[in-house]
Amino acid sequence: MEYKVLSKCPVCNSNLKVTRLNCNKCGTVIENQFELSKFSYLNREQLDFIEIFLKCRGNIKDVEKELGISYPTVRAKLDETIEALGYKVSKKPKVSSKDVLDMLEKGDISPDEAVKALKDGEI
Rank of each mutant, 00 (worst) to 15 (best):
K4E: 08
Y41T: 04
T81C: 06
E51R: 14
L78H: 05
Q33E: 15
L21R: 14
E51C: 01
E113K: 05
S40R: 07
E105R: 13
E45C: 00
K88Q: 12
Q46E: 07
A117T: 03
C12W: 03
L36E: 06
Q46F: 00
G68R: 08
V115F: 06
K17R: 14
C23W: 05
E113M: 07
E80L: 05
C9N: 10
N15H: 14
K4T: 07
G68H: 07
E83V: 10
K8C: 02
D99C: 00
D48N: 11
E122K: 14
K17L: 11
P72C: 11
K55N: 13
F39K: 11
V100M: 02
C12I: 05
F34T: 11
M103C: 03
G27R: 11
I30P: 04
E2M: 09
G58R: 13
K106R: 14
G86P: 05
K119G: 09
K38F: 09
V63E: 00
D112E: 14
I50R: 04
M1G: 15
I82C: 02
L42K: 06
E83L: 06
E122V: 14
I52M: 12
E2N: 13
E83N: 09
I60M: 10
F49N: 03
C12A: 08
A76V: 04
T73N: 05
G86N: 08
I30A: 12
Q33F: 10
I82K: 03
F53H: 14
D99N: 04
E64K: 11
S70L: 09
V100F: 00
E105Q: 10
V63Q: 01
C56G: 06
A114N: 07
L54T: 13
R44N: 06
K106C: 01
S110Y: 02
S110H: 02
G121L: 01
C12S: 10
E66N: 06
I60S: 04
E2S: 15
D62Q: 11
